[in-house]
């Protein structure tokens, strides 16, 4: 029984990280229709910035928000430098440009910082655990889930209540008509990127806190997970991204828990096999009906 509880905790924490990552990708996709393959690099940026701030002696209470800000700035820069010139191009073009951007950023880190992984001196409380009814729970996991829940609630409020949030949703549905409302839709786009940077920064903190290392290629896994989760959930659907994140984490946790030891290395293969299956059955992702609904209008 305690094992199940353990797995559930793992699932919730992992799902939170994946959900945040997927959401970051989905936000940009819903407004611009493009997949930001450099989204993983935002995590790398936040990681390296944490290293830098720690070296400069900045207290951790500040490092965390600062690293998130660094991620947001990087995201807005990406939009300005790479994505704005690509506006209006066909999907395959922006896909490849996006891929290229990711490679360029990774290589830049490789060149200017070095291939050796840097250690991030996380504060000791990230390693703390406590016990509840025989189940050992990491403080970090609880924090991950709680922060994510809070962030999602805030995001929901923003999208439903504030004019900018509603405008963002409108722009993702129909960019031209949003401009007809007298709203400067073009100005919404850097905002969407900043939002994705925020999500990536927060996800990055929790993601990196486990391994405590950052290297030029660190962003690859967050991108992969976030991307797959966003697609499973139905690309462009924000609620789908969150659902996809927990679904993917659920799959991984399930396989880890149930598959015989010998097959452990093949978990990834199984997971991706399931992904193809899901796409096969629901080409538009889990939120297929919702997508169809929007299209009908």
């Amino acid at each position: 029984m305690t094992e199940v509880a353990q797995h559930i905790v793992n699932w919730l924490a992992l799902g939170s990280i994946y959900a945040l990552l997927a959401l970051g990708i989905a936000v940009v996709f819903s407004v611009l229709g493009l997949i930001n393959f450099a989204h993983g690099e935002l995590v790398t940026v936040s990681g390296y910035s944490m290293v830098a701030f720690a070296i400069w002696g900045v207290p951790w209470a500040l490092i965390i928000p600062l690293s998130v800000v660094a991620s947001m700035i990087a995201a807005v820069l990406m939009e300005r430098v790479a994505y704005r010139p690509l506006r209006g191009a066909p999907v395959s073009t922006t896909l490849l440009g996006s891929l290229a951007l990711s490679i360029v950023i990774q290589s830049a880190f490789l060149m200017f910082v070095g291939a050796r992984p840097e250690s991030i001196p996380f504060p000791t409380w990230t390693q703390d655990t406590f016990e509840v009814g025989g189940v050992v729970i990491r403080t970090l996991d609880v924090l991950t889930f709680a922060t994510t829940a809070l962030l999602l609630a805030l995001l929901l409020m923003f999208l439903r209540r504030s004019v900018r949030g509603i405008a963002l949703r409108a722009a993702s549905e129909n960019f031209a008509v949003t401009r007809l409302m007298g709203i400067r839709a073009n100005a919404l786009i850097p905002g969407a990127f900043a939002l994705s940077g925020l999500l990536a920064g927060v996800a990055g903190f929790f993601f990196l806190a486990t391994a405590s290392l950052v290297a030029p290629g660190t962003g690859f896994i967050p991108l992969l997970k976030g991307f797959i989760a966003a697609v499973i959930g139905g690309l462009g659907s924000l609620s789908g991204a969150v659902a996809g994140g927990f679904f993917l984490a659920g799959l991984e946790t399930l396989f880890q828990a149930t598959l015989p030891d010998g097959t452990a290395p093949f978990i990834d293969a199984f997971t991706f096999g399931i992904v193809i299956l899901v796409l096969f059955v629901r080409p538009h992702g889990l939120r297929a009906e919702r997508a169809a609904l929007v299209e009908r209008a």
């Binding site: 191009a89 440009g97 490679i103 290589s107 490789l110 060149m111 070095g114």
Partner: peptide, 24 residues
């Protein structure tokens, strides 16, 4: 600041930039 590691780093950057430019 470019040191010996550049052997691995330069090629992808240049290729990546070329792709970006081509796409644009």
């Amino acid at each position: 600041p470019i040191d010996a590691d550049q052997v691995f780093g330069l090629t992808p950057i240049v290729l990546g930039l070329i792709v970006l430019l081509t796409m644009i």
